[in-house]
């Protein structure tokens, strides 16, 4: 890990100098000149950010944030972290961040109100099932009979309603912690999360639960591509997109993904 971090820092330092020499794309477009302000959730969860400390650069989104910043010409020490809720992220008016990444899925409707960067990750949706129903058949018919839960503010809701269409009204919650509390209280059988979150919850949070299936990415209209959220019309978008594209091309993004989200394979597909 330290090797990677060192490498990232080295690249960051290098590109920072060159970028400033050139008069980089992001100049004058950030909240604070010479610094990049990035928002994450409060709290930020594993495996996206480790120990709720994005400054460490540990965790997938924290690492992506530093890589993108470096690519844009910002040294690690010029990255400032702030916290924001989803509502703060979308409310009209000036934002207190340049970029906001907390697993925001890119959707057409959302894009009318805010700007998203190019996707930095595409996660399939996965089903976390409580221990009592962990051996449920993964056919749609069998899944329909379960009592479903999901986090109300996520694209898991349309996926659930359109792809599974449960026979009883699903229960929706304000955040992941409440979804897991309901599962632990036996009020829901299964819940939809993005795959990394589902794996984390099953391994660490909900005892006896199991990730029983994932949806192929083409099943729905790419609901699970995560993008960095920006204020509508933010001129920074072009620079961010360029940075993410370059990280994708050089394989750097895949490297970060492999480092932090490597265990996301081996879960059966739902057909």
């Amino acid at each position: 890990m330290s090797k990677h971090l060192l490498a990232a820092t080295a690249i960051a330092a290098l590109s920072a100098t060159t970028a400033f020499a050139d008069g980089h794309c992001a100049d004058g477009k950030t909240l604070t000149d010479g610094a990049l302000t990035i928002a994450t959730g409060n709290p930020a969860y594993f495996p996206w950010v480790l120990d709720n400390a994005p400054e460490s650069g540990e965790g997938f989104e924290a690492a992506v944030a530093y890589a993108v910043a470096a690519e844009m010409g910002f040294a690690a020490e010029n990255v400032t972290w702030v916290r924001s809720s989803f509502d703060q992220a979308i409310q009209p008016g000036p934002k207190d961040f340049d970029l906001n990444l907390q697993q925001f899925s890119i959707t057409e409707d959302r894009e009318k109100m805010v700007d998203f960067s190019a996707p930095y990750y595409a996660a399939p949706m996965a089903i976390l099932a409580a221990g009592s129903v962990a051996d449920t058949d993964t056919s749609i018919a069998a899944l329909q009979g379960l009592v479903w839960g999901a986090m109300g503010g996520t694209t898991a809701v349309p996926v659930l309603m359109e792809t599974i269409a449960p026979s009883s009204q699903p229960l929706l919650y304000g955040d992941n912690a409440d979804v897991t509390a309901a599962m632990q209280a036996g009020q829901i059988d299964a819940a939809l999360f993005d795959l990394p979150t589902a794996l984390y919850l099953s391994a660490v949070v909900v005892e006896g639960s199991k990730v029983i299936g994932q949806f192929p990415a083409d099943r729905t209209e790419n609901p699970d591509r995560f993008g960095m959220l920006m204020e509508e019309g933010n001129p920074l978008k072009a620079c961010v997109d360029a940075a993410i594209d370059s990280l994708t091309e050089t394989g750097k993004l895949a490297e970060i993904e492999a480092q932090w989200l490597q265990q996301t394979t081996g879960v059966p597909l739902i057909k």
Binding site: F86, D87, I90, T107, D109, R110, K112, M113, V114, G152, G153, T154, T155, V157, P158, Q169, P170, L171, L172, G174
Partner: peptide, 16 residues
């Protein structure tokens, strides 16, 4: 999922 949650779901999906 009563009206407040339903409105919250719409708010999130449409960022509005």
């Amino acid at each position: 999922v009563e009206i407040f949650r339903q409105a919250g779901v719409f708010k999130s999906l449409m960022a509005n």
